[in-house]
Design a protein around this nucleic acid. Structure first.
Lengths: 227, 227
DNA sequence: GTATTCTTTAATGTATACGTTAGTCAATAC
DNA sequence: GTATTGACTAACGTATACATTAAAGAATAC
C-alpha cells in the first residue's frame, strides 16, 4: 500500500488513477504480461488520458509496469528471480529496522501492535485462515519497519511489499501454513523488547531468508506462468 | 545518476526535462527549499507544461522535490537527519551487495573496476584533489553494488546516492581528506576476492557507519542551512 | 482597529486537439 | 511463394485551452 497523498478529501484524478490501476494489478484484473492502451484505461476509469498518463508514469518508476511506446502499458511479471531480489532487499531493510528498533528501547506498550499481529497470526493459523494470516503477517512486518524509524526504509519496503503481495496471490493457497514462523516473530519482538539489537537482526535475517527460500522454490515449482 | 531510458537518440521531452531539472538541482541552480512554478520551468526548458509536469511527478516519487498545489514545486532540503536515514539504507544495501559479491566468486579481472577506483582515490588523495576523490569514491560504491547483482538494490542505491552527492556539494571542501578510507575499500575488495562474505559485510558496514558519523556531524556543525 | 466576507487572480488539474511515428498490411517485383 | 517497399492507421508525445480552486487582498461591518 502507499500512503494517501491527501488525507482530507479531494484526491486528484491522477492519484485516483494510480490507486485504481494499482488495485487492479493486485486483484489480478490487470494480469502480469498484459498490455493496455492509455485510452482504454482512461475510458474505463472515466477520465481523460492526462491523469492516466501521469499515474502510469509513477507506477512505472515503482516497477509495476512499463510503458512501451506503441504497444500500451505492460503489466510487469514477477519472476522467481525478481522475487529473490525483492526478498533480499526486504531482508536487509527489515533487519536493519529490527536492530534500530532494539536500540531505541521501546516499552512493551510501544510494541503492542507487534504483539497483536503475532496473536492474530496464531489465531489465524489455528483457524487455518490463510487470508487472515497473510494480513497479520503484513501488519507485523510493516509495524516492524515503522518501529525502525527510518522513513526512507518504510517507503522502500512498502513498495517492495506490494510485489510480495502479488506473489502471494499465487502462492497463498498452495504453500503449507507457516505454523513455525511465529516463533521467529516472537523471538524478534522479545529481542527488541530487551534491547538486544544483535539477536533481533540475526533472527529476523534468518526468518526472512527461510521465507525467501520457501517462496522462491514454490514459485519455481509452480512453473512458467509469471505472476 | 539515472540510466538513460533510451540509448539510441530520441529522448522524449519528458525525459529531457527530468534530467535537466535533476542536473539543475545537483548543480545548485535550483537550491533546496526554493519554489518554482511549472510554467516557469516549462519556459526555461523551452517546452510546454505537459512534459514538465510529467518529469516533476517522477522526481517527486524519487524524493527530490514535492509539488505543493498552488505554491509551485519545492526543491526538498536534505537535513542531517535525512542524511542519517539515507546513509543507514545505503549501508544496509551496499553491505548486502558486498556479501553477495563475495559469494559469487569473482575473479581478479571481474574486480578490475573496483581496483581501479581504489587506485584513483589514492592518486586523488596524493594530489589533494577532492573532486577526483569524490568521483572515484562514487565509482567504487557504484561498482560494488553492481557486483552484488541485485538490480533493485542498484536502482535504490542510485537514487539515494544522488542525495549524498547533493550533500557533498556543501561538505566536500570542508571535510578532511579521507586518507584512511581506502584501507577499508581495499579490505572489502580483498574479502570479496577471497570469497569471505562475512568480513566483506562487516568491514563495509563499519566503513559506511564511520563515514556517516563524519558527514552527519559535519552537516550539523555547518548549521541550519539545509542542503 | 479588527475581523469577516467577498472578489479577484493566478496556478494547478484536466480535457482535448494535433502532429509524429511506429507498426501493419497490402501490393508489387522478383 | 517470398521479400521488399510503400501507404495507412492508430497510439503516443506534446501543446494548448479550459475549469477549478486556493490564496491574497480589498472592502465593509462592527
Amino acid at each position: 500500500m502507499t500512503p494517501a497523498p491527501d488525507k482530507t478529501k479531494t484526491l486528484s484524478n491522477t492519484h485516483r488513477a494510480a490507486e485504481a490501476i494499482r488495485q487492479r494489478i493486485f486483484s489480478g484484473d490487470l494480469p502480469p504480461g498484459s498490455d493496455h492502451l492509455e485510452t482504454e484505461l482512461a475510458d474505463e476509469l472515466g477520465m481523460s488520458r492526462t491523469p492516466v498518463r501521469e499515474a502510469v508514469l509513477v507506477l512505472e518508476t515503482q516497477g509495476l509496469l512499463t510503458v512501451r511506446p506503441r504497444k500500451g502499458v505492460r503489466i510487469l511479471p514477477v519472476s522467481p528471480d525478481d522475487m529473490e531480489e525483492i526478498y533480499e532487499v526486504l531482508t536487509a531493510l527489515e533487519s536493519l529496522a529490527a536492530g534500530r528498533a532494539a536500540e531505541r528501547g521501546y516499552s512493551a506498550e510501544d510494541l503492542a501492535d507487534l504483539a497483536q499481529a503475532i496473536d492474530a497470526m496464531d489465531t489465524a493459523i489455528a483457524a487455518k485462515d490463510r487470508e487472515a494470516w497473510a494480513k497479520a503477517d503484513d501488519a507485523f512486518h510493516r509495524e516492524l519497519v515503522r518501529l525502525g524509524g527510518n522513513s526512507r526504509s518504510i517507503e522502500i519496503v512498502d513498495r517492495l511489499a506490494d510485489q510480495v503481495r502479488r506473489a502471494r496471490l499465487v502462492t497463498l493457497n498452495v504453500r503449507p501454513l507457516p505454523v513455525k514462523s511465529n516463533e521467529d516473530h516472537r523471538a524478534v519482538m522479545e529481542a527488541i523488547a530487551r534491547g538486544d539489537a544483535e539477536v533481533a537482526v540475526a533472527r529476523h535475517t534468518r526468518h526472512r531468508d527461510e521465507a525467501r527460500q520457501v517462496l522462491v522454490a514454490l514459485l519455481k515449482r509452480l512453473g512458467l506462468r509469471k505472476i
